[in-house]
Amino acid sequence: MNQPILELRHIRAGYGAIEVMHDISFAIEPGQVVALLGPNGAGKSTTIKVVSGLLRPSSGQLVVAGRDVTGASADALSRAGVCTIPEGRGIFPNLTVRENLVMATFSGRSLEQIEHDAYRRFPRLAERRTQLAGTMSGGEQQMLSLARALAVDPAVLLIDELSMGLAPKIVSELYEQVARIASEGVSILVVEQFARTVLGVADWAIVMSHGVVQVSGPADEIGEEALTSAYLGDRSDP
């Protein structure tokens, strides 16, 4: 079996005195798309923060491609191929589309290559290259953050709530792109509240709640029932 591209070993993390992740372990195989699901406050976004290096775990190990990178800074992890699209919009609103792509060159690739890739994948961005990113529609902004993330040719892509505040139609369009990216062999960890949408793309699903992994299994085996109860409460409750 292949070595996992990303592995969390017994990670605990939190903010100040409050622990949000209680002993979380899971691994992502190369080329795999893993969906991280669960209600608000489950610790999903914290997991993304830990993996991207923005938050230092209080214990446990973070392993990328066999190397222990626990405690590495976000910029170092980014240059090592862990690319993150953070919650909200992963773009700089007061920079133009092109300047947003300039920011991606810190990964080491040239601007020409990055622009070429980005515009090939999302032709709409080419039309808006001199526009301020913040003035584009929500869907276009997410396209830009996807484009920026992909342009750097990451080993692992972390996506946090791609769908937030977007209309369902746009969300499905964006996930078609995610599926295409996955088919090119990029490993993806995606946090999403629209479980049904993401389960169509993912190979594996992990359901978190209250900071622990509740269910973990192949994406097509996660039942609607389990999801509904995780999101909208347990039916058996009075």
């Binding site: 509240q193 479980a195 949408t197 509904t228």
Partner: peptide, 15 residues
């Protein structure tokens, strides 16, 4: 509300 399909869709996305 819990049975409303629009609510389920809002939470879980279109199936």
């Amino acid at each position: 509300v819990r049975q409303n399909p629009r609510v389920l869709e809002a939470y879980l996305g279109a199936s």
